[in-house]
Structure formats: C-alpha cells, structure tokens
Amino acid sequence: MLEIRNLHVTVEDREILKGIDLTIHPGETHAIMGPNGSGKSTLANVIAGREGYTVTEGEIRFDGKNLLDMDPETRACEGLFLAFQYPVEIPGVANLYFLKAAVNAIRKYRGEPPVDAMDFWDLVHERMELVKMDESMLKRSVNEGFSGGEKKRNEVFQMAVLQPRFAVLDETDSGLDIDALKVVADGVNALRSPERGFLVITHYQRLLDYIVPGQVHVLVNGKIARSGGKELALELEEQGYALYNEEPGRARRAAA
C-alpha cells in the first residue's frame, strides 16, 4: 500500500535522504531504526507532507496514487496518519472539537455526511479507554499543558478515532516510562489488522518488544543500511549503531 522508490530529499540544500526504497503491504508493520540524524524524522515528515522538505528524486505511492502530489490534508483524508514526534500545543482549540472537525473533514472528502453526535461520542469513549485517557482531556485545548506521556497517548487516541489505513509513528516511544509505553503499544496493537499498515520509527529497540514488527530496517546517513526480521532489532540493541557509523563526518562529530 505504501511504496517508496529511490527517495532523495533535501532540507535547506542539504541532502538528508539519499535513495530510500521501501514497500509496505496491508497488514504489515515495519520498523525503521537508526541513530540521531540518520533521516528517520525526515522520512516521516515527507510522507505526511510537511513543508520545508524538497524531494529531488524518486516517488512515494499510496495505493498506487502519487502521494507527493497531495497536500497534507488530502493525504490524511486518503487514510494516512502521522503520530508526531513532537505533538503541537494549540491553545484555544478543544481536543474534542478538533477531533470532530478532523472526522468530519475526512467524511466530507469521502462524500459522507457529518458524523452523528451520539455515534461520535460512543466512538470517542470507546477509544479513550483503549489508551486509558481521562475524559477531562477532551475538553482541554489540544496538547496544551499535557505531559510528554499524555501527548503521545493523545496521538494514539487520535489515530484510534480517525482509523487511518496507514500510520507512521514517529518516535512515539520517546519520553515515555515503561507503563506509558505499554499503554501506547497496546493502543497501537489493538488497531493492527490485515487491512492496516504501520511504519514504526524509533531510536530504541524497547518499543519493538511491545509492537512487534514483521520487518526492521536500519537507516544510516540517509540510506537503508540493512533490512531483516524482528531479530535485527535485538542485534542493534546489543551492538548499537557503531557498526554502521562509517561516515567520517558523523564519526568526528560523535567524537567531539
């Protein structure tokens, strides 16, 4: 469902991604691991359509459609979801209002009428329990004053309500203690289905104990250095990324 071919991306004239190939089919969960600065978040942002990234070569197809031609809202309406590494605080916009606006925007795109108020309320309550979120968070402004864990839970909660067909989780584990990590992972696992694909981006193997991927890719210096099964994550945990850190520039920086 997601096909990335020879993707080259620059940010402010610096090449960050240097030829990525990746195919994810429905029902598959892939993990991308890599050291800081390897281009993991760039990949997530390019898939979601954030400004400031220039694709100089290659393509991304989503169900055969050219994803790079779509603006971010169209991608979301097509069934793509990005769980943000740094969820944004939006003072003055209530979480519930925001979610309903998103649900209705997606329904409108599909030619469906606005969601029934009772149905929406039932869905929200059911999904809130999935991520053990307190009802008070619905009335609060989007992410405003949320703890790091609450923000990440809110991302998974939004995903559970919007029910995308493909989700990218960008370092959803960062800043979570083990209990919060389990809650978030349970929420993701509950959504896993034969129709849905996931791309889990993480720095640490720990998350992959709970969200077990079918395939693991190691991203180093803008390229996929290695791909393998879930055991690759364990190997990385033991050996670290040092094995892949061959670029002199990066090594110097690490030493400094």
Binding site: P72, A76, L82, V88, F98, A102, Q158, L162
Partner: peptide
Amino acid sequence: FYLRARGIP
C-alpha cells in the same frame, strides 16, 4: 500543519 495532517483543510 498539525491540523492539516489530521485532514482539516
């Protein structure tokens, strides 16, 4: 961007 990434035009 956050709002648009959730489908809001």
